Computed example of a mutant assay.
Amino acid sequence: MRVGLFALGIGTGARPGAILKTAAEAERRGISTLWVGEHVVLFDRQDSKYPYAASGEFPLPGGADWLDPFITLTFAAAVTRTIRLATGICLVPEHNPMVLAKEVASLDRLSGGRFALGVGIGWSAEEFAALGIPFERRAQRTREYIEVMRRLWSDDTATFHGEFVNFDAAKSFPKPVRGGKLPIIFGGESGPALKRTADIGDGWFGFNVGPDDAAPLVDKLRAMLKANGRDPRDVEIVACPYTKKITADDLKKYDAAGVDELVILSSPPEDESQVSGWIERIAREWVEPAAKIR
């Protein structure tokens, strides 16, 4: 089992020195993936309910530092060579898909083909409103945008006519290293979210998924994949406990459930000189035990 790290781009993980040191040390100690999340704007108060808190309250204040994930990952890519880079997640319906396709392809090329696009449809109606994008039909918008981007990444000359996007004979270069097969990993734990993965995803990222939650969700996803005639072994399974408290003993439960990568959420220390020690602890507590399972 692999271990990823969700640590960069927010709060103490938004500082240049912390990003560079964390990325380099994480790669050195065998962490599989650096995951970076996305919000364009935050609010001190909003009516939308955050899905990962019982109170519905988002855990960060509106004034929290939150970097753009693509710039953050490009910065990290410059000091690494092998560690995977991924959005966890990118709010795809908040983007212009032509621009997003270019950003993804650029990051993937500059990193030598190490990027995976983690995708979500968003939960904050206030954020969509601030960006001037309809909150309704965001799931349908996301599916179409994914199709558009894969077309741009695959075809030398791309044409598309859909509900939200229309263009003829467009060229977008460079392509990602794997072209249209750049991995797209869908987030979300609901039935519709799992169905998106089963229909068009290369992977699934379950957030706030405890060791006992993983198996039922993975089983449901596998059933959907089989119903679609897809081999479940071709779809990556990623899980992050987030608020769920776990121990190293729980790694076996995640493995038995079929989880390929467990993502540890942890913020870099305030003192950047302590980043190396922080990564060492994560490696001892999670990376080394996980490596022994498979």
Score class of each variant (00 low, 15 high):
Lys195Gln: 14
Pro216Trp: 08
Asp202His: 12
Thr142Ile: 06
Ser154Arg: 15
Ala24Glu: 04
Thr247Gln: 04
Pro232Lys: 11
Gly122Gln: 01
Val275Trp: 00
Lys102Asn: 12
Pro268Asp: 02
Arg114Trp: 01
His161Lys: 14
Glu25Ile: 07
Arg196Thr: 09
Asp231Ala: 11
Gly11Ala: 13
Glu136Gln: 11
Ile19Asp: 08
Leu8Phe: 08
Pro59Cys: 12
Gly229His: 06
Gly118Ala: 10
Ala26Glu: 02
Val263Trp: 01
Gly88Val: 10
Glu261Ala: 07
Cys240Arg: 00
Ala129His: 12
Val235Phe: 08
Gly63Asn: 14
Leu107Pro: 08
Phe75Ile: 04
Ile31Thr: 05
Gly191His: 12
Ile293Asp: 09
Val79Arg: 01
Lys252Ala: 15
Pro269Trp: 11
Leu217Lys: 15
Asp249Ala: 13
Gly132Lys: 08
Gly122Tyr: 01
Thr80Asn: 03
Pro241Ser: 09
Ser172Tyr: 05
Lys253Trp: 02
Ala158Leu: 05
Leu34His: 09
Val148Lys: 05
Tyr242Met: 07
Glu27Ser: 06
Asn166Phe: 03
Glu38Thr: 12
Lys220Leu: 04
Thr12Ser: 12
Glu27Thr: 00
Val263Phe: 04
Met1Trp: 00
Ile89Asp: 02
Leu152Arg: 03
Lys181Arg: 15
Pro269Val: 13
Asp108Glu: 14
Val263Ile: 15
Thr80Gln: 12
Glu136Ala: 14
Pro93Glu: 06
Glu144Gln: 06
Thr33Phe: 01
Gln46Cys: 10
Met149His: 04
Trp204Val: 05
Arg138Ile: 06
Lys181Phe: 06
Pro183Tyr: 14
Gly118Ser: 11
Ala129Tyr: 02
Tyr52Cys: 11
Arg196Gly: 04
Pro174Gln: 14
Gly162Gln: 00
Lys195Ile: 00
Leu131Asp: 00
Gly112Glu: 10
